[in-house]
Write a protein that binds this DNA or RNA. Structure first.
Length: 272
DNA sequence: CGCCAGGCCTGCACGC
DNA sequence: TGCGTGCAGGCCTGGC
């Protein structure tokens, strides 16, 4: 469910509740995530202080002394805070009980998410090492996008969803950013000129920033760390709007499949 | 019942 | 040969 804005919304909600707290106990109810949850995670975490909650791409990083608890929410994950004693529901796989009275709980029905422990620098972990620039960093710029797309014959939408090119852009925001830039999602990436690279960097950032400001998008049951729904889904220009009129020109929004993912665009505003 | 869903890794085929 | 790229498959459950 979560793309970068939803993960960032979660991080911002949780950070003040967990920073500086000490982990009192850990409950793992189901270790079978995308990778198995480490068997000795409770032993490792208990008694540790959470120094900071950071984000890299769609990964949440609980910095704790000489290591980091890495959490990825996959397709259906949600991380929020409950009060001690709150009965776990089905798919509540993981709890972190803090000494400040908060219990951080992970729910992930599809279990495409991850819970990992990394000693030392978390960015050295194999899964994080290869991730491309953060979309709001200077490293993600038009020159980078231009260079990185020269050898790619595949669709531009697939390119910007590649976490090695830019971190955090998922299926929804890829369609939205391309709409804002007036770029057809099927356009071969290598055919994107310098000017359109400038435009796309700008709209990727603006789309993600607007979604974060709205508290993320609430598709299905996505809620933030306080259980509140985001409302960016009300601001979608094209995502999930096939058959409806383009809000800019009135042309019927179309959908197609690119890279096995549903894609939405306006055939007039994004003619090429 | 079948189909679809917000992620992303792996393995394979292919071309330079 | 080695590397980058492109694609399919797989991991799971829930909702329509």
């Amino acid at each position: 469910m979560p793309e970068l804005p939803e993960v960032e919304t979660t991080r911002r909600g949780l950070e003040p509740l967990v920073r500086g707290a000490t982990i009192g106990s850990v409950v793992v109810r189901n270790r079978a995530m995308r990778q198995p949850v480490p068997r000795d995670l409770a032993r490792i975490l208990t008694g540790r202080r959470i120094d900071a909650l950071e984000r890299r791409g769609k990964y949440l990083l609980f910095r704790a002394g000489d290591g980091t608890l890495i959490v990825h929410l996959g397709m259906s994950g949600r991380l929020w805070v409950v009060t001690p004693g709150t009965a776990p529901a089905t798919h509540d796989h993981f709890d972190l009980a803090l000494d400040n009275g908060h219990v951080v709980r992970l729910r992930d029905p599809r279990r495409f998410g991850l819970v990992l422990w990394q000693r030392g620098d978390p960015l050295a972990h194999k899964l994080l090492r290869a991730i491309g620039p953060e979309p709001f960093s200077n490293a993600f710029n038009a020159e980078w996008l231009y260079r990185e797309t020269r050898s790619r014959s595949g669709a531009i939408k697939n390119a910007i969803m590649d976490s090695h090119l830019v971190a955090g852009v998922g299926n929804i925001y890829a369609s939205e950013a391309l709409f804002r830039a007036g770029i057809n999602p099927k356009l071969p990436a290598r055919r994107l000129g310098p000017a359109r690279c400038v435009a796309l960097v700008e709209t990727v950032r603006a789309t993600l920033a607007d979604a974060i400001a709205a508290g993320g998008s609430s598709l299905r049951d996505y809620v933030n760390s306080k259980g509140e729904a985001g409302y960016f889904q009300n601001n979608f220009s094209v995502y999930d709007r096939a058959g409806k009129p383009c809000l800019t020109c009135g042309t019927t929004i179309r959908s197609l499949v690119l890279g096995q993912r549903s894609t939405f665009y306006c055939p007039r505003c994004q003619a090429r």
